[in-house]
């Protein structure tokens, strides 16, 4: 491989890191409150808001049902509004975040819903308010599941970010398609795949390790 290609791969690696890092961070920040709201407002939950629950749930389903490539194109006007451009890494972060947030919110919802109802009652019985229950019961008890779900979200965003090349965002997937596929450079293709495998394995390993540590308590 030429030094330019190595340089190109390095930059693509950084771009992928940026896209995945930024979008999963946003997914984390927005997905947890959404998941908490979904759980708290569900039938028999601590907040009585069935309509808002259905609305948010429906929106999440809508975004989850739309394929990422379609979402990316459909969101172009919105992306321009937010970032001022429709190409480049940050332009890709917008649809990636909007795809990752509902994805993670649903996974987080499942973990939160699995928290034993008896624990919530015990907290209520000692005088905890709703906020205390979220802070001291729901989130800490669901933490292993949340960490595991976040790991899955990161890995799936690494995959989705490969498609961001369509809007000129670069990244490893883009390099693989442009050089490996379109110019028949098998070496580049294999190297990119190897790098992606290493990244995914590292993320999964770190996530599994954290979950194991949390569950060992």
């Amino acid at each position: 491989m030429s030094p330019q290609m190595i340089d190109r791969l390095w930059h693509a690696f950084l771009d992928t890191l940026t896209m995945v890092g930024a979008s999963t961070f946003i997914a984390l920040a927005a997905g947890i409150p959404l998941a908490v709201f979904l759980v708290m407002s569900a039938q028999g939950g601590l907040i009585q808001a069935p309509r808002a629950n259905r609305l948010i749930g429906g929106l999440i389903n809508g975004f989850r049902a739309t394929p990422f490539v379609v979402l990316m194109v459909a969101l172009l006007p919105f992306t321009r509004l937010v970032t001022g451009t429709t190409i480049g890494v940050w332009a890709a972060v917008v649809p990636l975040s909007i795809s990752a947030t509902p994805f993670f919110a649903r996974i987080a919802e499942v973990s939160l819903r699995e928290v034993d109802h008896g624990l919530i009652e015990a907290a209520q019985a000692v005088g905890c308010r709703r906020w205390h229950i979220i802070r001291h019961v729901l989130l800490p008890e669901a933490l292993p599941g949340l960490v595991g779900g976040f790991t899955i979200t990161i890995v799936s965003m690494i995959g989705a970010s490969a498609m961001a090349g369509v809007i000129g965002a670069g990244g490893l997937g883009d390099v693989a398609i442009r050089y490996g596929y379109q110019r028949f450079d098998t070496t580049v293709m294999l190297v990119v795949i190897a790098i992606l495998i290493v990244i995914v394995c590292a993320v999964q390993f770190a996530g599994d390790f954290a979950v194991r540590r949390l569950r060992a308590r």
Binding site: G118, L119, E121, A125, G127, E141
Partner: peptide, 20 residues
């Protein structure tokens, strides 16, 4: 909330927070 601080409760399955 004030009443609940005057009324303690214990449970068959203990209901302790595993993360604490």
């Amino acid at each position: 909330v004030r009443l609940r601080r005057r009324v303690g409760m214990i449970f068959q399955h203990f209901n302790l927070l595993s993360a604490k």
